[in-house]
Simulated scan of single mutants.
Amino acid sequence: MSDSRNELMRKIQELCFACLDMNLYLDNNPCDKNAIATFNSLCNQFLEARCLYENKYGPLTNFGFSPSKYPFRWVESPWPWEREFND
């Protein structure tokens, strides 16, 4: 697997974690404007990185969350859980 693919997947994982972490913080601090701005920024970065990955390498999720180009790309290998990621 190419380094750029690994790097992009790592970025997606990091941004996903950061979004979840900020979400948990905001559950307890819903009026923190700076945290909301950070959360929104991280969510946008996550969506951009995910879209870039999916356009280049295919969908990461199924069940209607990831639009597909023709032909339907979900059936292409390797599937997200079959991919090996190196540190």
Score class of each variant (00 low, 15 high):
residue 23 N to C: 03
residue 24 L to S: 10
residue 7 E to F: 09
residue 36 I to D: 03
residue 34 N to F: 11
residue 78 P to I: 07
residue 30 P to E: 07
residue 40 N to I: 02
residue 50 R to S: 09
residue 49 A to R: 00
residue 42 L to N: 00
residue 2 S to A: 11
residue 27 D to E: 13
residue 66 S to D: 13
residue 49 A to E: 01
residue 24 L to D: 09
residue 17 F to D: 05
residue 52 L to W: 05
residue 20 L to H: 14
residue 62 N to Y: 13
residue 42 L to K: 04
residue 60 L to R: 01
residue 57 Y to H: 01
residue 20 L to G: 15
residue 64 G to T: 09
residue 55 N to C: 13
residue 36 I to Y: 05
residue 64 G to S: 09
residue 58 G to Q: 00
residue 73 R to W: 00
residue 42 L to H: 02
residue 58 G to C: 13
residue 62 N to E: 10
residue 9 M to P: 01
residue 33 K to F: 05
residue 18 A to K: 06
residue 27 D to S: 09
residue 8 L to G: 07
residue 60 L to A: 02
residue 6 N to M: 12
residue 7 E to D: 14
residue 45 Q to V: 04
residue 60 L to D: 00
residue 41 S to I: 05
residue 82 E to L: 03
residue 51 C to S: 09
residue 32 D to E: 09
residue 47 L to K: 14
residue 35 A to K: 14
residue 43 C to T: 08
residue 7 E to H: 11
residue 72 F to S: 03
residue 48 E to C: 12
residue 13 Q to W: 08
residue 81 W to P: 02
residue 19 C to H: 01
residue 2 S to N: 15
residue 82 E to Y: 03
residue 26 L to Y: 04
residue 26 L to F: 01
residue 8 L to A: 12
residue 32 D to L: 03
residue 85 F to D: 11
residue 58 G to A: 12
residue 68 S to V: 04
residue 57 Y to Q: 00
residue 33 K to S: 07
residue 5 R to L: 10
residue 87 D to A: 04
residue 63 F to D: 13
residue 66 S to G: 03
residue 11 K to L: 14
residue 87 D to F: 12
residue 14 E to S: 10
residue 44 N to K: 14
residue 31 C to Y: 08
residue 73 R to L: 01
residue 79 W to A: 14
residue 20 L to K: 12
residue 7 E to L: 11
residue 54 E to C: 11
residue 60 L to V: 04
residue 21 D to M: 11
residue 87 D to V: 06
residue 60 L to E: 00
residue 64 G to H: 13
residue 30 P to H: 05
residue 86 N to G: 03
residue 57 Y to A: 00
residue 85 F to S: 07
residue 84 E to F: 07
residue 47 L to I: 06
residue 29 N to M: 04
residue 22 M to E: 10
residue 47 L to H: 06
residue 54 E to I: 01
residue 32 D to T: 06
residue 55 N to T: 11
residue 8 L to C: 15
residue 78 P to Y: 10
residue 3 D to P: 03
residue 31 C to R: 04
residue 82 E to K: 06
residue 5 R to S: 04
residue 77 S to H: 14
residue 14 E to V: 03
residue 39 F to C: 06
residue 40 N to D: 15
residue 8 L to Y: 11
residue 20 L to A: 10
residue 34 N to G: 15
residue 8 L to D: 11
residue 68 S to L: 02
residue 62 N to R: 14
residue 1 M to S: 15
residue 50 R to H: 10
residue 39 F to T: 10
residue 86 N to D: 08
residue 54 E to D: 08
residue 55 N to Y: 08
residue 31 C to H: 09
residue 45 Q to T: 02
residue 75 V to I: 15
residue 27 D to K: 12
